[in-house]
Amino acid sequence: MRFALLTDLHANLEALQACLQHAQQQGADQYAFTGDLVGYGGDPAAVIDIVMAHAARGAIVVQGNHDRAVDVGPGPLMHGEAREAIAWTRQQIGSEQRAFLAGLPLTEQRGNMLFVHAGAADPAQWEYVNTVDDAERHLRATRSRLVFCGHMHTPALYRRADDGAMGSHVPRPGVKIALLPQHQHLIIPGAVGQPRDGNRSACYAIYDDVSRTLVYYRIDYDHGAAARRVIASGLPIVFAMRLIEGL
């Protein structure tokens, strides 16, 4: 199967549609959404509806911290502007959409693959994986050979050999990466809806479980339209500026 790996959609309809269209063109036949469907962006209802439709067809979907906040309220570490977006999102979505977010699991296991929004060591703590040491701790916490996660908003790839040696790889868009079976890998596709690495193009990746290869992609989309939607919704303007600047 060719898994399209999409994370941190953050209610950005234009970015999501562009990535899904590209994934279809690449022959993706399975989809995995690793959390944060909402928050920051101006189209939460439409984005949730798209993911719900994919879930009905067998897509993998796990819960992110923004998704959970819509159900139970923001956590203590969520900053004020994000809290404002959560309160606004609650008013924009219906009961079926909210129930969908509330019912999402924190993790999903498919064979040797683990799908989770944040760190695998304790998914409910929403820990970030920013360094090799972080990646090592989370890989040691699971027997899964492949861990797919989001939360970081920047594409990254870490590996752990059977002897415990760690390494990292800076992925380049469109370049095929072979994932060796003797290694554990932690794969962060980057954010569909709000990239923060200085490149405003949407990020996602495709994993082929037959050839054991991974390709990261950067997808241009109408970020201006997405930013205008944020502003028109009355959300903090910083969320629109992030879409324009990729920061």
Rank of each mutant, 00 (worst) to 15 (best):
L20A: 06
A4N: 00
Y31P: 09
D29Q: 12
A23K: 15
A18Q: 13
D29L: 06
I48N: 03
A4M: 02
A11C: 01
V38F: 02
Y40G: 00
G42N: 07
G42C: 09
G27C: 06
A46L: 06
D8R: 00
Q17M: 10
V47D: 11
D8Y: 01
F33Y: 14
A45M: 12
F33L: 06
A28G: 02
A45H: 11
L5G: 00
L16M: 12
D8P: 01
D36Q: 04
A32G: 10
G27E: 13
V38M: 04
L9R: 03
L5M: 02
A32H: 07
C19Y: 13
Y31L: 13
D8V: 01
G41M: 10
L16N: 10
D43N: 09
A46N: 09
I48H: 05
L5A: 00
V47Q: 09
L20T: 08
G42W: 08
I48M: 08
Q30S: 15
L5R: 00
L16V: 07
A45Y: 12
A45N: 03
A28M: 10
Y40E: 08
C19V: 10
L5V: 01
F33G: 14
D49M: 09
E14M: 06
V38T: 04
L16R: 02
D36F: 01
L13D: 04
Q21N: 13
A46C: 06
A23Y: 15
A11R: 00
F33K: 12
L5D: 02
V47P: 07
Q30E: 15
Q24S: 14
Q21W: 14
N12V: 02
A4S: 01
Q26G: 11
D43W: 05
A45R: 07
T7G: 03
D49F: 10
G27H: 10
G39P: 10
E14L: 04
L16E: 11
Q24H: 15
G35N: 05
A23D: 13
G39Q: 11
N12L: 05
T34R: 07
A32V: 12
G39R: 11
C19A: 11
Q26Y: 03
Q25W: 15
A28S: 07
Q25M: 14
D36A: 03
Q25V: 15
Q24K: 13
D49V: 11
V47A: 10
D49P: 13
A18E: 07
P44R: 09
Q25F: 14
T7E: 04
V38P: 03
A23H: 15
